[in-house]
């Protein structure tokens, strides 16, 4: 029995797959315009590579595989981008005190009413601002792990990082978020 061979119909790509590819992207990169550009780039790249399509996988699977490369490229780019938001260190990184809390970053007491306030809408806004103040790479991994709840293994595979790498990023993101929320919301 002959295996059905898939074909490409680029003129139908946008109506058929734009939403699907966009959803895939936005759950990883929480930025509408950036995600839109990546989807457009994926279509362009697919068009350029259409002679390499062998018809073994479906059109959609093939487009996703191209998009995945685009997302890794994007991650690498923000990983190497210096400046802008900086990740603030919470612990001494060398010397006698290596691994100890840096004095002004030690957790302080929070308002006792806090737990009742979690439902507060403004809290979510403060949180969003704090996440956005993280370097993009940290925000991206933090969101994938915590908000989208991807498996550790999945994130590592997709972004080509090790799990210890991932936990360092999560740890730095969470300690910085803790401090940010303390300063902006939970302070006594």
């Amino acid at each position: 029995m002959a295996v059905k061979k898939h074909t490409l119909n680029p003129e139908k790509w946008v109506p058929l797959y734009a939403d699907y590819l966009f959803n895939y992207t936005i759950s990883r990169i929480n930025n509408h315009d950036q995600a839109k550009d990546l989807v457009q780039d994926t279509f362009f790249a697919a068009l350029n590579a259409k002679d390499n399509f062998q018809g073994k996988a479906s059109e959609r699977t093939w487009l996703i595989s191209i998009l995945k490369r685009k997302i890794i490229d994007y991650y690498r780019k923000i990983n190497s981008a210096k400046g802008k938001a900086e990740v603030k260190m919470n612990f001494y990184s060398d010397g006698e005190l290596e691994g100890d809390w840096i004095e002004e970053r030690v957790p302080t007491d929070w308002n006792a009413e806090i737990e009742k306030n979690i439902e507060n809408k403004e809290l979510t806004i403060a949180l969003e601002n704090c996440i956005n103040s993280l370097p993009e790479k940290y925000a991206m991994v933090f969101r994938m792990k915590t908000i989208q709840q991807f498996e550790t293994e999945e994130i590592c595979k997709e972004l080509e990082i090790t799990s210890s790498n991932l936990w360092v990023i999560i740890h730095r993101a969470r300690t910085q978020l803790r401090k940010c929320m303390e300063d902006n919301w939970f302070k006594k």
């Binding site: 680029p10 003129e11 790509w13 946008v14 109506p15 734009a18 939403d19 966009f22 959803n23 936005i26 509408h32 839109k36 989807v39 457009q40 279509f43 362009f44 068009l47 737990e115 979690i118 439902e119 809290l123 979510t124 949180l127 969003e128 915590t146 908000i147 989208q148 709840q149 929320m181």
Partner: peptide, 29 residues
């Protein structure tokens, strides 16, 4: 707990491309 709360808000917020954006994309292609 706050992150969990944020998750429930973010995940019900439907992010999508509007028709205008899709038209532009199609024309570019």
């Amino acid at each position: 707990k706050c992150y969990k709360k944020k998750r429930t808000i973010d995940c019900t917020k439907n992010q999508c491309l509007c028709d205008e954006e899709k038209r532009t994309m199609e024309n570019n292609l």
